[in-house]
């Protein structure tokens, strides 16, 4: 759905608790939210569970008529919170380190396909560079360039000011640039 007006209309329908509209919303966002979560949890099963949870929780929020100013940012924020809860739970249960799980990796089954596609491209170096970045930088680059969120939306998702987001994005880009030199 490229047309921003159509997207706004869709969000209005969702706010009006229209299940068909929510179905369209699901189609539009499932890949992006899954990817956002997957990059953070690095597990297909966990990413699937958390993505399902995000969509269900979001619908409940809509049903409770909670104020949602920006649906685009809100769904990412909810995904982010689900991941945070997931790690909290996991740390408590298994005493696992959060850092060790947050590595940007391509799953095994997709590595070969990706390898083919990456031939004659700089993608591999970029992915390597990305994987060496700290989580904060990785997250903001994914939100900005893969999910194409605006600075305002990222600020909403991360709970930071727009200025802080711009600075963070600049530092993340510079660090990635240095990593792949």
């Amino acid at each position: 759905m490229k047309n921003p007006l159509s997207k706004k209309i869709l969000f209005l329908k969702i706010k009006n608790q229209d299940p068909d509209a929510y179905s369209q919303f699901y189609d539009l966002y499932i890949t992006r939210i899954y990817r956002f979560i997957y990059f953070k949890v690095n597990s297909v099963n966990d990413a699937q569970d958390l993505t399902s949870e995000v969509f269900l929780r979001l619908w409940q929020h809509i049903k409770e008529s909670r104020e949602i100013k920006n649906m685009n940012a809100y769904v990412y924020m909810m995904a982010r919170n689900c991941v945070i809860d997931f790690y909290r739970e996991r740390t408590r249960d298994r005493e696992l380190s959060l850092e060790s799980d947050q590595v940007l990796e391509i799953p095994d089954e997709q590595r070969d396909i990706l390898a083919q596609q990456m031939k004659n491209s700089d993608l591999e170096s970029i992915l390597t560079g990305l994987s060496n970045l700290k989580d904060e930088y990785k997250e903001i680059l994914v939100l900005r360039f893969l999910d194409e969120l605006s600075i305002t939306e990222i600020a909403d998702v991360l709970g930071k000011s727009k200025g802080a987001v711009r600075v963070l994005l600049h530092r993340a880009t510079k660090t990635l640039q240095n990593n792949i030199k």
């Binding site: 956002f36 993608l123 970029i126």
Partner: peptide, 29 residues
């Protein structure tokens, strides 16, 4: 660099969910 970052999406392999799961999950939802 920024263009390449955007290109990652085109490969549709980086964190792409399985299609069967997307459909079944939608049904459940």
């Amino acid at each position: 660099l920024l263009n390449k970052l955007k290109d990652i999406k085109k490969f549709e392999v980086a964190g792409q969910p399985q299609e069967s799961w997307v459909l079944s999950n939608k049904e459940i939802l």
